[in-house]
Amino acid sequence: MEEVLRVLPEGVKNIIKRYSNVERGGIEEIRIRINRPLEIIINGSPQFPQVDGREYFISREDASQITNKLSQYSLYALEEELKKGFVTIQGGHRVGLAGKVITLNGNVKAIRDIASFNVRIAKQKIGIATPLLSYLYSGGWMNTVILGPPNSGKTTLLRDLTRLMAEGYPKRSIASSKVGIVDERSEIAGCVHGIPQHQLGKRVDILDACPKAEGMMMMIRSMSPEILIVDEIGGAKESEAIIEAVNAGIHLVVTVHGSSIEDLYRRPSIQELIRSGMFKRIVELSRSSGPGTIKAVKDHKGNEIRRTKVI
């Protein structure tokens, strides 16, 4: 939490410090909204901590402090981040922003009068993808979709799977692979100034803050990856880029928002990828026993090959 504490306003920082190490380890989000109470989400449950018997309401001074710390006292330095709506800080943590949106010719130019901040705590769980090796690797990595609702652990699982692919796994005679990550939201690698903040392996190349469809084609042309990693696909252009990558002999692991495989069939840009059998494995996640609960592993026809819950 040290990287997070550095950017928090003093009042919020002092509240976080009151929590035990165990409680801090369960923090998922810190939501800061002007003139509303501080909200801290711990293990999926919202909490509204009190100071002197009253909920701690966020002041404009609190918002000013976190803005200044994020921008190092220069909003100009955050110009690109203000277009995207989030800032990635040391440690790979992400601070989402909301407020008055400024547009130019229909495109977002910046966010002004920032009134809400969502500090999302990035967590790397080394080894959580290891139990899936038997289902995702058979003489080679299989094209895989990781499917789950928001905050179900998709990106965390994807991050560890990336590490296994790039490092290899000698216990199962799995060699390391060249892995390309297209990290449009700077969330998989959590890059700061282009340098990943997470342990991803020695054979990883990253296109940070790059649109997914364009990034996949750039990777194919310039970095010759054996595996492409992409978070939260959904658009038609992304589906076209996936088809190009598969035709070029590249393996893919992607995440998609959804609660079940039926959700994939309801999305026109994705359903054909699934129906064609392009993705051989579908890992369904849920939050039923906390983020990272494996609901099922299915083949390309939707048949379950594993249903054991794993945290």
Rank of each mutant, 00 (worst) to 15 (best):
Q50C: 10
P150E: 10
S64L: 09
I242G: 10
L104Y: 13
E184K: 06
K298A: 15
K295P: 00
I121P: 05
I58S: 03
K69T: 08
R267L: 04
V12H: 01
S71R: 08
K17C: 09
Y76D: 12
H93C: 03
V95Y: 13
E272D: 08
R307K: 15
Y56R: 14
I206D: 03
E284V: 15
L78K: 04
K13I: 03
L158I: 12
T144S: 12
N14V: 05
S74G: 08
R185M: 09
P150T: 04
H300T: 03
L136F: 14
L104W: 02
K123H: 07
H251G: 03
E184Q: 12
K123R: 15
P49Y: 09
S71L: 06
D208F: 01
I89Q: 13
L38N: 03
S286W: 04
K84H: 13
E240R: 14
S20L: 00
K125S: 12
A213H: 08
L82S: 08
N35S: 15
G127Q: 11
I32R: 08
N118P: 13
P149M: 08
S259W: 03
Q50D: 05
G91R: 09
R31M: 13
K123D: 04
G85M: 05
Q47D: 09
P170S: 09
L70T: 13
A98I: 07
A296H: 00
V51M: 09
G302A: 10
R307I: 11
G277R: 02
S134E: 12
I126L: 15
A122D: 05
N118R: 13
F48Q: 03
Y19G: 01
Q65P: 02
Q72T: 05
Q197H: 03
L285Q: 02
M278F: 10
E29S: 00
I121K: 12
K100G: 00
I220N: 01
Y265R: 11
D52E: 15
L104H: 11
V95L: 07
M216G: 04
E214Y: 03
V230M: 08
I58L: 10
I311P: 07
Q47S: 15
G106P: 07
L38C: 12
E61R: 14
S45V: 15
K125D: 02
I294Y: 00
K237C: 00
I16S: 00
Q197K: 02
L5C: 06
I58N: 04
K100Q: 11
A63K: 07
A63S: 15
I261F: 00
K83P: 02
G106D: 05
E39A: 09
V108H: 08
R120V: 07
S116M: 14
Q199Y: 13
V253Y: 12
I305P: 09
G302W: 06
E80N: 14
G139P: 06
V256L: 14
P211L: 08
H93Y: 12
Q50Y: 05
A241T: 13
G168C: 00
E39F: 04
Q199W: 01
E226C: 06
Q47P: 00
Y135D: 10
E232C: 12
R203F: 05
N107C: 03
I229M: 05
A166E: 01
G127F: 11
S64D: 13
A63L: 14
A63T: 14
Q65D: 14
R120W: 10
S176Q: 00
V22K: 14
F117V: 10
P170G: 05
R33P: 00
I270F: 01
V297M: 06
S152V: 02
S276N: 01
S222F: 07
L104F: 11
A166H: 02
K237M: 14
I311H: 11
T155M: 03
